[in-house]
Design a protein around this nucleic acid. Structure first.
Lengths: 238, 238
DNA sequence: CGTGGGGTTGATTCTTATCAATTCGGGTGG
DNA sequence: CCACCCGAATTGATAAGAATCAACCCCACG
């Protein structure tokens, strides 16, 4: 249960049994998906959020010239689509990366939760703020770092988001998807992995990524984990 | 009063007198700043948000190698720092671009507002979601568009955020700051303005920017205003 | 009058994209 | 069990886009 939505919230703060069962209602309607399946098309009415209980997924935008930019990488316990709360039409596409269990729930359900639990209201605010911080760091990544730093930074971020306990994990994105996340071509992702391997920072075999020298890698990527570590003092008590 | 924080919220939805006066409490402690003044340093304890009542400001991160990335452009009526609600230390620097009136208020004040007004709670959620959408569009901009498209897109976005009524306005960023916003060098911003001028899309004189052919510019930049136009159906009624 | 900061322009270099060919590995069908 | 096939990854050659460096202009301001 550590990776479901309850786990995500418990990682932020202590929550009561009542709040736990409220959160569980968001995961009632699980649906199973194969990899590379579109969960929600862009330009479709979007009346739901989606909790991801198992597997990986991403959101992307396809541009007029056919280019693609990936916006979010969703991991278990995360909520897909929060940023579109005020829009009737989605402008992003949600796609699975692996086999996944996805639980849609109506947007209005969120307001109900706000009504029922001030504590969860605060925590949802914290969640959306954290998402924003991740986007802000990606802007820094895209705007002002080299290809190798971008990739290194992204790998470390993913490691931390996965729980930070392991220095080896499966990165479920092809090099083309990595490129579309980091604003690079797939060819250059390949070269960049080679660059990082040659410097003894990262080993890689298929999806498997092993961080060889975490300290050097963080230094190289200018990675500061602050933006993923929130404190919850400010919130109301449960 | 249209450009203060009350105006921002009224643009989203109808709010009651009680809510208006709640919002006004956020603007009680106005402070005047000259241009290019640091309002909040990075790595300092951050216990406040800031409402901007007059003028322009931005947030930025300085990287290890001295490079800078600008994350937000704050316009009157916006709230600075929302994304850092869960952090005790700021990792961004807030700086004025023009003479400005800035109103700090303690973070805890937000929780109080959540307590007092469910309606405003929803709207604050909408505000932070909208900010997130702006960041997401900048990611697309940085990741997958040419320099000229980036600049064009940013100019249109700013026009819309300023109220969208005028095709001519003062863009209060030097070319160096524009570069640090869009991940380009200041020299290249200069060339890119020339490029857009040569194509009859934008005229410019000092800070003054005139959009000559909005339709062509939007087409060129692949600009879709959806992400700035929210709908508030989902929220609780005031 | 200087002086200094921002903007422009040209020449050159560097990073990354693009295009093309080749390899690798996993899955399929005979 | 093997031959084949396909998609992804790798590698090399070349091109494009933007950075960098340097010179110069413009002008606001003391």
């Amino acid at each position: 249960m550590d990776s479901c939505i309850v786990g995500q919230f418990q990682r932020l703060a202590n929550i009561s049994d009542k709040e736990i069962s409220l959160l569980r209602t968001l995961e009632e309607n699980a649906e199973s998906y194969q990899p590379d399946v579109i969960i929600q098309h862009e330009d479709q009415p979007s009346k739901h959020f989606y909790t991801i209980r198992k597997g990986w997924a991403y959101s992307s935008r396809i541009l007029a010239d056919g280019d693609r930019q990936i916006l979010d990488i969703f991991l278990p316990g995360h909520i897909m689509g929060l940023r579109e709360i005020g829009f009737n039409k989605s402008t992003y596409r949600f796609v699975t990366l692996t086999q996944a269990e996805i639980c849609p729930f109506p947007k209005a359900r969120l307001t109900e939760i706000f009504n029922e639990s001030p504590r969860l209201t605060d925590l949802f605010f914290l969640v959306i703020a954290r998402e924003q911080s991740i986007l802000a760091e990606r802007i820094i990544n895209l705007g002002r770092r080299s290809a190798a730093q971008k990739l290194a930074h992204f790998v470390i971020e993913t490691k931390v988001r996965l729980g930070n306990t392991i220095d080896e994990f499966d990165l479920m994105l092809s090099q083309e998807l990595l490129g579309d996340t980091l604003g690079l071509s797939s060819v250059h992702i390949s070269r960049t992995f080679k660059f990082l391997r040659d410097r003894g920072l990262i080993e890689r075999d298929g999806n498997r990524v092993k961080i060889v020298d975490l300290e050097a890698l963080m230094e190289f990527a200018d990675f500061n984990p602050c933006y993923l570590e929130q404190d919850v003092q400010w919130a109301r008590q449960g």
